[in-house]
Nucleic acid binder design. Structure first.
Lengths: 226, 226
DNA sequence: GTCGTGAATTGACCCGCATCAAACAACTTT
DNA sequence: AAAGTTGTTTGATGCGGGTCAATTCACGAC
């Protein structure tokens, strides 16, 4: 891993991200001031549970998995972050210690923002605070969704849900490419890879065709009522 | 359900709550201005998923269960709120629609704060925003904890965890009274009531004695390593 | 105290998914 | 083309916990 300054394309990615685009421009600039960039290989650990955290991370490219460890060493994914998503805001307002482990799930480029500075800006500028509030609410909702899905849905239902969430409204049949390995998807859905595979083959009878990373949906209705 | 103004003891409960105590005093006063109170019987519904929400709720007494419904009518608890806890902040910064159902799990008294006003105060006063940020981070962490527990721990382990979280540090044996029905605890832990019961009887061999709502712990060590 | 009602427990059974092992497939490497 | 390497699928098996039914228990009303 090496640390660099931001390139102009890095800046562009950041400024277009969901979070930055809600930030007052001056604040966005101020935060970018102290930003650095690091590159990581697959399986690199970005931080570990209970580590003291001084930076907020933003994924510029690649994929980051956030997970907790059980006593027996098993891993439970809490969240998966893609390009433009922000990691570690929670930490900033708690005790500054990570509540989970973060690991690159593919080769990744990560922007690191000083959380002290961001925290301070939030204390000075309600626009910044507002953006953070929206970000946290959004994260919170995703986690809640996840929890509810775990408790209410079977494996094929979760997968059907995931597929539908990638389906443009109105279209009856369509196809898309998984944004990451099935491995990672399984973790995100709280499944073992084998269970994901079996779920896909169950869904075949509802018009889901899987070819490598490409998912094709032939009958949206059937999926919805699964 | 009937709606009233705040009594002075209501005010006291609010001002001592985790959230209000972090609020600038003037802001706290301002919010209390427009506050109302409602009383509810057990099983009363406070709001339903997708309902438009105009108030943030604070539990003055009793207990509120937040849950989602599955297609088949099964319920999955997202969170349980006790005295002094705040419900519906997420909603305020999203699309103002409830992401879950809320129901009184026992006879309850609820304070209702105008979320418009709170939102506005947050936009004017970074102190208010700060308090909200901390609140959201805290909620977020609890939900994450829940998700991780669901995925990593068996029923007896979750129960052991719950018990330990109520154990004052340092004491080797102690006892406490469950703050709500086992029913509710089961839901909170993502278990059927029967599973909770079985978990308790599994833990008996580790020195846990259950008498009605009172839990007695004889051997903390044994619990921790479960 | 007795009674009655809802909560909690226990037993029997079954389903979903984790786990382990092995076969396959898609890519690299040589 | 052959041999790894890594990701994915398939099969066999076992455990955890959900569900249904039947008691038993706890607690408030009387």
């Amino acid at each position: 891993m090496k640390t660099l300054r931001l390139t102009s394309s890095d800046r562009a990615i950041l400024l277009n991200s969901r979070f930055f685009s809600r930030l007052p421009r001056t604040a966005a600039e101020a935060i970018l001031e102290g930003a650095h960039v690091s590159t990581h290989e697959e399986h690199d650990t970005l931080f570990r549970q209970d580590d003291p955290i001084d930076d907020v991370l933003v994924v510029l490219s690649g994929l980051v998995r956030l997970y907790r460890l059980g006593k027996d060493g098993r891993e439970a994914d809490i969240a998966v972050f893609q390009k433009g998503e922000v990691i570690g805001v929670n930490t900033m307002f708690l005790d500054r210690r990570a509540t989970a482990n973060a690991q690159a799930a593919e080769p990744s480029i990560i922007a690191r923002l000083e959380s002290r500075k961001l925290h301070q800006l939030a204390a000075e500028d309600t626009g910044v605070a507002q953006a953070l509030l929206e970000l946290l609410c959004h994260h919170g909702k995703l986690t809640e969704d996840c929890l509810a899905e775990d408790r209410l849905l079977t494996a094929p239902q979760r997968v059907a849900n995931y597929i539908l969430s990638h389906c443009p409204i109105g279209s009856e049949s369509f196809s898309f490419r998984l944004p990451f390995q099935k491995n990672v998807l399984a973790g995100k859905l709280g499944l073992a890879p084998e269970a994901l595979s079996r779920a896909f083959s169950t869904l075949r009878q509802s018009g889901v065709v899987v070819k490598g990373r490409v998912i094709e949906i032939r009958d949206r209705q059937a999926l919805e009522q699964f």
